[in-house]
């Protein structure tokens, strides 16, 4: 069984974000990129299956420009065995569904039977793409998973069901799994892996290579349009509470929370 990993590069979490002049996106010139943190859990889960002899290969799939190759290389160095980068001018302005179409088609072309994705990308913050990929492939999905095992095609996954409940879900391959923190501890690449990764070709695919038409992706195919990007309104400057003793300070804080902020 080949396992796919949907891997996206995102601005490093401490990046200062600058909005472009037409307010439709951000300026990427000074951005330091990294693998989306949740996709690292997805990648690690896939590599562990390969190490355990349960996966024959790990295919990293990304929709991204040439500058995403370094993150794909990093994934190969950690233990992925194949990579597909979908890149096409027609993808510009894609919404989650457009990206999902490209990713689902690439996964199909690679012949993967199990897909790991991050629960959410920390740039779009949408948590939408993997469920759409699952729907397009007609596969079951288990989202926000913190425990996973697969045996003879039977999957057991633990997920946070909210309200303090953990659900244990059973399903079978093929399936799409989205990964949360706590699932595993991602490894770093070692020198041997870095050398081995250099020999692996990253397959670049266009939209047409995947059998999609330009109208199914990009701004033309988008059902959601994001614009008017702006910085959040600044918080009115806060008050540092003065007082001679800790007791005086907390009394004043509680008074302000009750009488001024009216939250208690």
């Amino acid at each position: 069984m080949k396992v796919g990993v949907l891997l996206k590069q995102v601005p490093a979490s401490d990046t200062i974000i600058k909005i472009n002049p037409d307010k439709t996106g951000v300026l990427t010139a000074d951005v330091k990129w990294e693998i989306n943190p949740y996709d690292e859990f997805a990648l690690e889960a896939a590599i562990q299956l390969k190490d355990a002899g349960k996966a024959t290969g790990v295919v990293v799939i990304t929709v991204g420009g040439a500058d995403a190759e370094a993150r794909v290389r990093d994934a190969l160095a950690r233990g992925a065995t194949e990579a597909i980068r979908v890149d096409d001018p027609a993808l510009a302005g894609s919404d989650a569904l457009g990206k999902a179409r490209a990713l689902a088609a690439a996964a199909k072309s690679a012949g993967v039977e199990l897909i790991f994705a991050g629960k959410q990308a920390i740039d779009t913050d949408s948590a939408a793409v993997p469920g759409m990929v699952a729907e397009l492939l007609g596969w079951p999905q288990v989202s926000v998973v913190t425990g996973f095992s697969v045996d003879g095609g039977k999957i057991t996954a633990e997920r946070n069901a909210g309200g303090g409940f953990i659900e244990v879900v059973s399903t079978s391959v093929p399936a799409v799994i989205t990964c949360d923190k706590g699932l595993n501890t991602p490894r770093f690449a070692n020198l041997k892996g870095i050398m081995a990764a250099k020999k692996i070709a990253i397959a670049a695919k266009s939209v047409a290579d995947l059998g999609l038409s330009a109208g199914q992706v990009g701004a033309a195919g988008a059902l959601v349009e994001e614009s008017g990007l702006e910085l959040p309104p600044p918080r009115p400057s806060g008050k540092i509470i003065q007082g001679a003793t800790p007791e005086a300070k907390v009394k004043e804080l509680v008074r302000l929370l009750r009488d001024e902020a009216k939250v208690i």
């Binding site: 951000v26 913050d125 959601v224 349009e225 990007l229 702006e230």
Partner: peptide, 17 residues
């Protein structure tokens, strides 16, 4: 309206369907 980039930016989203 929705926060993106971990709330560093707020975007306006419209649906075309």
């Amino acid at each position: 309206r929705r926060p993106v980039y971990a709330g560093k930016v707020i975007a306006t989203a419209k649906v075309k369907s």
